[in-house]
Amino acid sequence: MADMSGASTPAGATDMLDGADGVRRRDWIHIAALSTAGVGGASLLFPLVSQMAPSADVLAQSTSEVDVSAIEPGQAIKTTFRKQPLFVRRLTPKEIEEANAVDVGSLRDPQTLAERTLVGSENLLVTMGVCTHLGCVPLGAAAGEDRGDFGGYFCPCHGSHYDTAGRIRKGPAPKNLSVPEYAFKTDTVIRIG
């Protein structure tokens, strides 16, 4: 281009684009300007991405309180934690026995019942009611529901069976029902989250 019609090509273009003398003098200013613009553009992504994360009001909702005093042994209640179902179950001595009789080493997700409950209240099993397979709500919390082959919970979507400690025993789910962080706020009320 410059060779063919150099006479009519603006000199600036020749210097800048072709580097007529072989050295791109002061090219750094273009590089600096472009990279600064790149940094600016990239930092715009931060608010645009961050706005999709949970907002302040959603994060603030992330604790729940449950009164557990009225749950009889063998019963469970279904409540919510972070807009997800939460199962709180009072185990009978027989159920505790069943759970403890299992060889932990043979489990897909090895955990003992004691590891899944609070010290001093081993008969209170608090788990999320979210199947670890694909997120359905397992049956077994309400009276009369199918509790599966192991007397705990049964997820009807894809047939995962959980035992009385909420551990996965059969079916496609990879993990035990997760136990959220919680503590006794008073003797009868637990605070989750």
């Binding site: 603006p10 000199a11 600036g12 020749t14 002061r26 200013i29 273009h30 600096a32 472009l34």
Partner: peptide, 10 residues
């Protein structure tokens, strides 16, 4: 500066 540099010859 980049703009001035590019237009310097003009």
């Amino acid at each position: 500066l980049s703009y001035k540099q590019i237009w310097a010859g003009m």
